Amino acid sequence: AEKTGIVNVSSSLNVREGASTSSKVIGSLSGNTKVTIVGEEGAFYKIEYKGSHGYVAKEYIKDIKDE
C-alpha cells in the first residue's frame, strides 16, 4: 500500500540513511518534489530514493495520498 506525498520545505529536505536525525544524510530533495512512501518509522517516512530507500522527517511531507 504505497502512498505519495509532496516535500513541503522552502529550500531542501535531507534524505537520511535511517529513521533518525543522527543518521547519515545520503541526499536531499527540493520543495514540491513528489515522493513515494513505502513505510514509516517513528517520526520518519521511508521513501523510494535513487533506486533504493531513504528516510525523511514526516513533518516536512504534505498531501499524503494513497496510490
Rank of each mutant, 00 (worst) to 15 (best):
Y49V: 03
L13Y: 03
I37R: 01
I47L: 02
E17F: 08
N14T: 09
A1H: 12
D66N: 15
D63F: 10
V25Y: 05
Y45K: 01
V9P: 09
T21F: 13
G51D: 08
E59N: 07
R16G: 04
D63W: 14
S22D: 11
I6L: 11
K50C: 07
S11I: 12
T36G: 06
T33H: 10
Y55P: 00
K46N: 03
G51R: 05
T36L: 14
G31C: 05
A1W: 09
S30R: 10
I6N: 03
G5M: 03
G42N: 15
V25K: 07
E41M: 11
Y60P: 02
T4M: 09
T4R: 03
G27S: 02
G51N: 15
A43E: 15
K62W: 08
G27M: 06
T36R: 11
K46C: 06
T33S: 13
Y49C: 03
F44K: 01
V56D: 00
G5Y: 04
L29M: 04
A1R: 04
F44Q: 02
K46D: 02
N8H: 11
G27P: 00
S22L: 14
K46G: 02
S20K: 13
G54Q: 02
I61V: 11
S30G: 14
D66V: 12
E17K: 05
A1E: 07
A1Q: 09
I37W: 02
I26T: 04
G54E: 00
G54Y: 03
T33K: 07
E67H: 13
V56G: 01
I47P: 00
S22F: 12
S12P: 12
T4D: 05
Y49E: 01
I61E: 01
D66A: 09
V25M: 07
S20T: 14
S20H: 11
S23Y: 08
K24N: 12
T36S: 04
V35N: 00
Y45N: 01
I47W: 00
E40T: 11
G31P: 08
L13T: 12
E67Y: 06
G5E: 03
E17V: 10
G39W: 04
T4P: 06
V9D: 07
K3I: 11
D66F: 08
Y45Q: 01
G31H: 07
K34W: 12
S10P: 12
S10N: 10
I6V: 15
V7G: 03
F44A: 03
A43N: 11
L13S: 03
E2N: 09
G54H: 02
G54S: 02
N8L: 13
S52F: 12
T21Q: 10
Y60R: 06
H53L: 09
K46P: 00
G51W: 09
Y49D: 01
K3M: 08
A57Y: 12
A19W: 07
N14S: 08
V25D: 04
G42Q: 07
A43P: 15
V38T: 05
A43I: 09
L29K: 01
K62R: 13
I37H: 00
G39D: 07
D63H: 15
I6Y: 13
S52R: 10
G54M: 02
K50L: 10
N32F: 09
E17A: 14
A43Q: 14
S30P: 10
G42M: 05
K50H: 15
D66L: 13
E67T: 13
I6K: 05
K62Q: 09
S23A: 15
K62I: 07
G27K: 01
Y60K: 05
K50M: 06
K24D: 10
Y49A: 01
K34I: 10
K65T: 10
A1Y: 11
E41L: 13
K65C: 04
D66H: 11
S30D: 15
E67L: 12
K50A: 13
D66K: 01
Y60Q: 05
T33D: 09
E2M: 12
L29A: 02
S30K: 09
D66R: 02
S20E: 11
Y55H: 02
K62S: 10
K3Y: 08
K58A: 05
K62D: 13
H53I: 07
G5L: 02
F44W: 11
T4C: 04
E48Q: 09
G54L: 01
E40H: 09
V56R: 00
A57E: 11
G39F: 06
S11K: 08
A1G: 08
I61L: 07
L29T: 02
A1V: 11
D66E: 11
E48A: 10
K62A: 14
E40G: 06
I61A: 01
S28D: 15
R16W: 13
K46S: 03
S11L: 07
E17S: 14
G31A: 12
L29Y: 02
V35M: 02
G51M: 07
G27Q: 02
A43G: 12
V15S: 00
E48H: 14
E48M: 15
V35P: 01
K34H: 08
K65W: 14
G27Y: 04
E40Y: 07
K50P: 03
S28C: 05
K46E: 06
G54F: 03
E48Y: 11
V35A: 02
E59W: 05
A19I: 06
E40S: 14
S52N: 11
V25R: 05
K50N: 13
V56I: 13
G18Y: 11
D63C: 05
I6Q: 06
T36D: 07
I61T: 02
A43F: 11
G27I: 03
N8A: 15
I61H: 01
S12K: 15
T4A: 05
S23D: 05
G54N: 01
G31Y: 10
I61Q: 01
N32A: 12
E17T: 08
N8F: 09
A1D: 08
S23K: 04
V9N: 07
T33R: 07
N32G: 08
